[in-house]
Structure formats: C-alpha cells, structure tokens
C-alpha cells in the first residue's frame, strides 16, 4: 500500500511539473517571438507617427492616443459606478431573492464573451442613444465589460473587513454613511484598486467589442484637443471623435500581406504587452502596500 501511494505521489508530481512547464514555456516562447520580431522596430518615430501605406513610415501615434482616451473614459465610468454598485450590494441592499439573482448574474456577466458586449453597445450606444462610433461609445462599452470585475473585487474587499470593525463604528454612534465613508471604503481601497487595474488591463487588450461598434482601423489624425484657445478653454469634443486603439491597429497590420507590416504588429504587440504587464505589476504593488498598512 505504502509503495502504491509513493508511486501515485511521484506520478502526480511529474504530471503537475510537466503541465506547469509546458504552459510557462509556451508563454515565454510567444513573448520571446514577439519581442525578437517586434523590438527592433520600436523607435521614436514608430511611437510618434501615424499609420501609413509604407510599413517603415507607419507608427502607433493615433492608436496609442486612442487607447489612452478610451481607457480614460472607461476608468471614469467604471470606477465610480463599480464601487457604488459594490458598496450598495454589500452594505445597503436587502438580502432577498432579487439581490441574490443580481449577485449571481454579476458573476455570470464577467464570463460573457466580449463581442456580446460589443453587439449590445452597437444597439444601445450607437443606434439608440446616437453616440456614434466615438471614443465615448468605446469607453462606455469597455466600462460595461469591466464593471463585473470592479464590482466583484469591491465586494470581496468589503467582505474582508471584520464584523468587529463595523460593530465598533456603530457602537460609537456613527451613521451608516459615516461607516461607509470613513471605514468601509478606506479599508477596502487596496482591493478595489487592484480590481480596477486588473479590469483596465483586460479592457486595454479588447478588440472585438470595439470593432463591433465600428472603430476605424486606419486613422491618420488625432482627436480634438481637450484644451482650447478660446473660452471656456476645455472641450469635450474629443469624446465624439472617431478613434482606433492599439489592438485594432495590430489587427489591421497583421491582416496585410506584407511581412514588414507584420513586424509593425509585433512591435505594437510588445508595447501593448508591456503596458499590460506594468499595470499588473502596479496591481501587485498596490495590494502589497495596502496589506502592510491595513491589518486587523
């Protein structure tokens, strides 16, 4: 019996290590291939040029500005709405069949294919609300996509707060709003920020829903500047401008026959991947910092 257990133990260990090695090696092979192909192409002019018919003159300026603008809108919508929804569900919502149903569906929503969000956005934002194929539409679409992530992590962070803290706050005569404002939100900031960053790093690589709503694949101009020379000096016109984003630019280049464009795509891929990795690193740092600061 003892020998049998040892054999099983050995087999299982071998299997686990094999599985682990294969997945890590595949990932590293992909990254290495991308970097080897793409990295030599990255230079200042690649970052600051518009796309072009000539592969060696093409750049990612409009795509990276587009990504930045879309992410800005996504964050501005998803963060407040997501946190508010999470706090409401955890702290205010009555516990009944309706809220249970909503809770289950929020988790399900995180698993819905992103193109479905794109179709929904096309119908709602583009046609019904006539927001056009704009940065605003894209930001709203992606914020819907990451809302479940933000809501779920907000709720998890709130649930990690011990009930003793809640009792202490109430016993001091504080109101529910004071509890939420002074304790619940500050103590769950770490978890919430992690969720936001992870959500945004998912949104930044999304292509399908943006193509569905009609993002352009070739764009040689920038959105309107948010700052203007005449009163009131700020303009929101950029929200209504057409756009493209990094993954769409990549998609566009990959679908061309010339190998030079494929190299461009790899270079854009390296940049996109670096941004994603930096964001994930940021999430880890934020989590560690808060874990040190907020202990029970």
């Amino acid at each position: 019996m003892w020998l049998k257990a040892k054999i099983y133990n050995f087999l299982f260990l071998t299997l686990s290590i094999a599985g682990f090695t294969i997945s890590i090696l595949t990932l590293f092979a992909l990254i290495a291939d991308l970097v080897v192909t793409g990295a030599p192409r990255i230079d200042f002019s690649f970052l600051t040029s518009f796309p072009s018919r000539n592969a060696d003159q093409a750049g990612i300026l409009s795509a990276s500005v587009g990504t930045l603008c879309v992410m800005l809108v996504t964050a501005l919508v998803a963060v407040p709405v997501g946190i508010a929804a999470g706090v409401y569900l955890e702290e205010y919502a009555p516990k009944n069949w309706l809220t249970t149903l909503i809770e289950i569906n929020i988790s399900n929503l995180a698993g819905v294919p992103s193109i479905v969000f794109g179709l929904m956005a096309l119908g709602l934002f583009v046609y019904k609300l006539s927001l056009g194929q704009s940065i605003l539409t894209a930001g709203l679409t992606l914020s819907l996509l990451i809302l479940p992530i933000v809501i779920v992590t907000t709720r998890e962070a709130i649930r990690a707060i011990p009930t003793g803290i809640r009792h202490a706050v109430y016993a001091l005569g504080a109101t529910k709003w004071q509890l939420v404002r002074d304790h619940i939100i500050p103590y769950s900031k770490g978890g919430i920020s992690t969720g936001v960053i992870i959500g945004l790093s998912r949104a930044i690589g999304e292509t399908a829903p943006l193509i569905t709503i009609g993002a352009l694949t070739f764009i040689a101009f920038l959105p309107n500047s948010p700052i203007t020379s005449h009163f009131p000096f700020i303009s929101f016109q950029w929200l209504h401008d057409p756009f493209t984003v990094l993954p769409i630019q990549m998609f566009n280049w990959v679908s061309r026959p010339q190998p030079e464009f494929h190299q461009n795509a790899a270079a854009a891929g390296v940049i996109l991947m670096s941004i994603t990795m930096i964001m994930n690193l940021g999430a880890i740092i934020v989590r560690l910092r808060f874990r040190k600061k907020v202990t029970w």
């Binding site: 803290i165 202490a168 016993a171 001091l172 005569g173 504080a174 103590y187």
Partner: peptide, 30 residues
C-alpha cells in the same frame, strides 16, 4: 444619540487600522 450615551467595549479588541490618535478621535469627530 443613544449610542453616544451608551458606549460599548467588545470581547475581541477591534481597533481601526488607523493611528492611535485617530482611533480615539473618531467618535468625537463623527
């Protein structure tokens, strides 16, 4: 108002993850 008159100390100490000063100051500030 009731809980301002009737304070409570719990079985498991439950300080806020804030400074010592802010812990004591929380009630009056609230």
């Amino acid at each position: 108002e009731l809980r301002q008159h009737v304070g409570m100390v719990f079985q498991k100490s439950n300080p806020f993850p804030k400074s010592i000063f802010d812990n004591v100051a929380y009630g009056p500030r609230a």
